[in-house]
Amino acid sequence: MNKTKKKVRPGIIAIHIIMIILCLLCIIPFLLIVISSITEEKTLLMNGYSFFPEKLSAYAYTYILSGNGGKILHGYAVSFGITVVGTVLSILMTLLYAYPLSRRDLPGRNIFAFFVFFTMLFRGGLVPSYMMWTQMFNIKNSYIALIVPNLLMNAFYIIMMRTYFSSTIPNELIEAAQIDGGSEMKILWKIITPLSKPMVATLGFMTVLGYWNDWMNGLYYITDATYYSIQNILNRMLLDIQFLSSAAATQLGTAADIAANIPSTGVRMSVAVIGLIPILIAYPFFQKYLIKGIMIGGVKG
């Protein structure tokens, strides 16, 4: 084709500019809370949250880490715990359901598939679910409430996993393993799962996001703040300015005295930043799986 040097066309520059503006729009809001979290409290009270604060200070973070933020650190541990346990359970259950579903020789295959698919079309909604979980299963104020309702299995993920199995894993492989006398469990565990690592990573990361970011289960089923995850603490802190001071007061003494000393304007933002960090650290490692997952899942519907 043309041998001349690649000229940079104005159209391309315009597209770069548009994309860069979009990217900045995605990042700048985060910068505001990050910078606010390291702004000195007095500066915050005087000038508000700002991108260019007069005076910086790490006080909000030392305040949390030096033991005043017991609730916050505990909530952080709760979030980690439910995310790990929930994700492992969820992936196991999804694998166990999706694998038989991917096999053409499963009796009643269509019924099982429809059983999953129907949950995407029709839902009972909050009221019956709430009544069932609180009255029949009594899970109010327990860690189970943060793990089990709604989040454990996602019909969409099961279908994605099944499609992945049936489109990438050759039938002959399974047949060969069966001839060698491998049990179905062994085949799933030793052959199918290792071959499906990209899909497991994709759904794993999406499930991690689901658990780490979830605050609705906590809102519905938790009234005792000792079971709060970091998201529930954040939720309460924003809607209820007294929450942080009352939490500290019970640990430290008189409420009035504490309320005056709590750098709540900055601490709020630092807790939000702390809640954000694990996702942003994990993201670069999983972004290629996430993007692939969105592409596969989205197109297949």
Binding site: F30, L32, I33, S36, Y49, N235, A272
Partner: peptide
Amino acid sequence: TIILIPYLISIVIVSYIGFAFMSQESGF
């Protein structure tokens, strides 16, 4: 990678960002 970042975070944190911009007394 960058345009996906807002998708990753919880709506609770979005509300903090909103608050940082729009709060009556201390909003940007």
